[in-house]
Computed example of a mutant assay.
Amino acid sequence: MLKEFAELSTPLIADACVRAGVPLRAAPPGIACVPAGRRIAGRALPVRHYGSVDVFLEAFSSAEPGDVLVIDNGGRTDEACVGDLAVLEAQAAGISGLVVWGLHRDTPELAAIGLPVFSYGSYPPGPVRLDEREPEARTAARFGDHVVDGGDLVFGDADGVLFVASDRAAEVLAAAQRIHATEREQARRIRAGEPLRAQTSFADYLTRKAADPSYTFRAHLRRTGGAIEE
């Protein structure tokens, strides 16, 4: 999956979801990766954190190579829920990366390990609580407004993280490839001296818009074959 994602990006995946009519499920803004610049793509392995790493260790026993551990810590900012030992163990289990709705710690150690860890920042204290588990502790993870389960794929890069249902992934990736090809051609033409306004017949759009206020730029792009928006 990472190989298929190699020439794409989360913005392209997001646009492809909209174009294909696939629910757009993005992690809340602000998520970033340690080490910086790394990318992830793989099957979601969801867990909910309740104050102990034991749920992670249990999840690793059912992990498949390339899985992405998706950790639901409720977006908490009063504790870090994952550190170097848990990440080392994830790496040993074949996990390709972690996505945390919460915070991490041991930042220098995580950078040295090199396994991508997407989170909302670092914080020295670990949890001092131990809450009761929910029945869905290892089957579904909440992430912002979304629920992620083992039927989802995870894509992450410098722009953020997206979740896509695996049964729609081929369709989304194909659409993303088409958008990518169109945008690269548009970029080449801009560099060659042909402005995007000329490529998209923007003057014609403005004329049509004046005559028909319901005529949108997205509809115009679909008519002209452009791809700066969905």
Score class of each variant (00 low, 15 high):
I13D: 06
R223E: 14
V68Q: 02
I71R: 02
G21Y: 10
L115M: 04
Y123G: 00
R25M: 04
A44H: 06
R48Q: 03
V18E: 11
R142H: 03
R218S: 14
D149P: 07
D78H: 06
G126D: 05
G156H: 03
T77H: 07
G83T: 05
P35W: 14
T207S: 14
G126E: 01
F118A: 11
R197P: 04
F60Q: 01
V47H: 06
I31F: 13
P29H: 11
T139L: 14
R223C: 11
Y205F: 09
G97S: 02
V22R: 12
D72W: 00
D149M: 06
T77M: 09
V87D: 04
V147T: 06
N73S: 14
R184A: 13
A14S: 09
I13A: 03
W101D: 14
A6R: 05
H104N: 05
E136I: 14
R189G: 08
A227D: 01
S62F: 14
V47C: 07
E185G: 04
V161M: 05
K209E: 11
V68I: 13
V68D: 07
L115G: 01
A44M: 07
L206K: 06
D106G: 06
Y205P: 07
L8C: 10
F217P: 15
R19I: 15
G97R: 03
V47K: 02
A32T: 09
A187M: 12
P195F: 02
R76G: 09
P65G: 08
A32G: 06
L115V: 09
R142E: 00
L173C: 04
E229R: 02
G74V: 01
T10E: 06
D72M: 02
G30E: 00
V147W: 01
D15C: 12
P135G: 03
E79P: 03
S119G: 10
Y215A: 02
L57V: 09
P65V: 00
A203H: 03
R25K: 08
S52L: 01
H146R: 05
C81G: 14
V70E: 01
A92W: 08
A14V: 11
G225Q: 08
H104V: 11
F155A: 13
C33Q: 03
L103P: 12
D149S: 05
L115T: 09
